[in-house]
Computed example of a mutant assay.
Amino acid sequence: MKTGRRTLTATAVAVVCAITVLAAPGTAFAAPTPRPSPGTTASAGTHPGEDSGAAPSRDLEAVRKKLERLYRAVAVATEEYNAAEERTKQQSAEIVELTGKIVRGREKLDDLEDRAGAAAASQYRGGGLPPEAHLMLSDDPQDFLVGAGRIRQGQHAAKGLLGEMRRTQEDLEQYAEDAEARWRKLETGRRARAKAQRKIEKRIAAAEKVESELEQEEKERLAELEREAAERAQAAWLESGVLEGVAAGATAQGRKAVAYATAQIGKPYVWGAEGPEAYDCSGLTSQAWAAAGRTVPRTSQEQWRRLPRVAVRDMRPGDLIIYWNDASHVGMYLGDGAMVHAPRPGRTVTTAGAGSMPILGVVRPGGTADGGGSEKEGGRGNGKKGGNANP
Rank of each mutant, 00 (worst) to 15 (best):
A223I: 07
Y260N: 08
G372Q: 05
W183H: 07
W271G: 13
L162P: 00
S92I: 11
P358N: 04
V74P: 00
A158D: 12
P36A: 15
G366I: 08
A230G: 13
M332Y: 02
V246P: 02
F29N: 12
E215H: 12
E107S: 04
K376D: 05
I102Y: 05
T41Q: 10
E224I: 08
P36M: 11
K267R: 13
L67G: 14
G378Q: 02
G386K: 00
L320G: 02
E85G: 05
G337F: 00
D114S: 15
G293S: 14
R106Y: 13
T99D: 11
P317D: 03
E85H: 15
Y175F: 15
G266F: 00
P358C: 02
G53D: 09
T9I: 08
S138D: 14
T251A: 06
R190L: 13
A75G: 13
A263P: 08
R184Y: 06
S328L: 03
R72F: 04
L307N: 01
S37F: 11
E132I: 03
A229T: 02
K195S: 12
A119L: 14
E50G: 10
Q197R: 10
G355H: 00
A73S: 09
R106N: 12
A250T: 08
G361Y: 01
Q253D: 10
T348N: 12
A352Y: 10
K101I: 09
A230M: 12
S356H: 04
T46M: 11
R167E: 09
V310P: 01
E173M: 10
T99Q: 12
I151A: 04
R69H: 07
G346M: 02
V312D: 00
